[in-house]
Design a protein around this nucleic acid. Structure first.
Lengths: 259, 259
DNA sequence: GAGCCGTCCG
DNA sequence: CGGACGGCTC
């Protein structure tokens, strides 16, 4: 079973890349972030023709999270609550059961600037993810994958220059602590678990200043797994080839293989 | 000698199409309309690498006319006057000598709606083209080509449905008279001169409502020639293949061959 | 429908 | 830099 996560930076702007990528890699499940469209503009039909079921939690302009799956999807939650509509909530979280596994696609707030209102919202959002969501709905014994763009670089080795990124919105101790709190639920970073020695591996590179060509990136996209799945994780790949395509997203997809 | 005219609907949005088209057709001269950029953003270098000299009269956002030539270019006029800068004038007219021929690239105002201020400007513009420009600077005995997007369909056979287009901004008797006045200088439509029987041949099709696929177009782009050149005109082709490419301009190029 | 631009956001 | 979008033109 191949599970992927990819911040596509607008699904409508990424259609060609997405379709080609799905055909090449044939993942069973894909968690998508930053689709940036309302439900009506989501490419439901086209994805179905490529053999994917989709569930989507969208809003106008910003955010938007989806789960694509070759297998039937059930038990879908949108946002922090499954009760009623979500008009007041940013579309950053969607969850579904695929086969025997709970899949969560998360787009953690960027945080704008340390100390800003948006930064406080980011911290609060991560706290809610742990305490209102994981703790309430799930248990660490479940087969559960928390996938997405977390906008946090866990360690200094996860940014290309720790001086440049010192105390930034993705490295500040407060967001690292908030992420640790989430993982303390009983989750591990599949990539780092399998490859503790792999440094200078990133998942996001700025479009400008030739960020990608000189590998000035940060690792902020993850597939986190509970113990039952960590033990069966065979490989995790950051697909830098996709980032090197024409008209790429600024994020690379991550693909984890289980069993 | 191959001379072409093409309303590219933004030269920057049409770079790939333009470069491929130049390589395929290798025209000696190309008159361009609606480049839609200031001089600094015109692709001078790239065109030079493709062996074309360029002269350009641009403005921000709208209009913009160019002449590209494989042969050296001299005696360039921008706008209705060659005196001083043209800050107050829309960039709709450029003229240059290539070999022994005067080439004029013209983008006649669209006219918005019959009776509007813009419609009056269109009529005035065509009158100035004849009386302030052709009559003053040139003679019908010269080897002269007036090329461009005239936003006028001379005859009912030049629109796909004469009822739909009846009394429109491109068929109204006032604009047809204004165009006739220009041609009375001593110019003939090379296409209609060579092929009086060819109907349902158009140069512009609306992007929407599947205009091109059902050939719902209008013929508003022309290569007009003075007598010395009319006699040596061997062929005129409306390049509908280019209009059928991906990401096309809404106008097709016209290519005339002389000698 | 598809260019342009300015403004917002990451 | 490159998304989205609204307002503009054709």
């Amino acid at each position: 079973m191949k599970v992927a996560t990819w911040n596509v930076n607008s699904i409508r702007a990424r259609l060609n890349n997405l379709y080609a990528w799905l055909k090449t890699h044939q993942p069973d499940v894909v968690c998508i972030q930053e689709s940036k469209c309302v439900d009506q503009l989501f490419p439901w039909k086209e994805l179905r023709l490529l053999n994917y079921h989709s569930v989507y939690f969208g809003q106008p302009k910003y955010n938007g999270v989806a789960i694509l799956s070759k297998h039937p999807i059930s038990s879908v939650y949108k946002g922090f609550t499954n009760l009623g509509p979500h008009e007041d909530e940013q579309a950053r979280l969607i969850s579904a059961k695929v086969l025997d596994t709970r899949i969560i696609s998360a787009y953690v707030p960027n945080g704008h600037a340390v100390g800003s209102d948006k930064f406080a919202y980011k911290l609060k959002w991560l706290k809610r993810l742990r305490e209102e969501y994981l703790d309430t709905l799930h248990s660490p014994e479940e087969r559960l994958l928390l996938c997405g763009d977390f906008n946090v670089a866990p360690e200094d080795e996860d940014v290309w220059d720790s001086d440049v990124w010192h105390n930034s919105i993705i490295t500040h101790h407060s967001v690292r602590n908030a992420l640790t709190h989430v993982l303390d639920f009983g989750l591990q970073d599949t990539f780092r678990h399998l490859y503790p020695e792999r440094t200078q591996r990133y998942s996001w590179w700025d479009y400008s200043r030739s960020g990608f060509s000189s590998n000035k990136g940060v690792r902020i996209d993850f597939i986190f797994a509970t113990q039952p799945l960590i033990d069966s994780c065979q490989d995790v790949v950051i697909d830098t080839e996709e980032r090197a395509q024409t008209k790429p997203s600024d994020h690379a997809p991550i693909i984890a293989t289980f069993e």
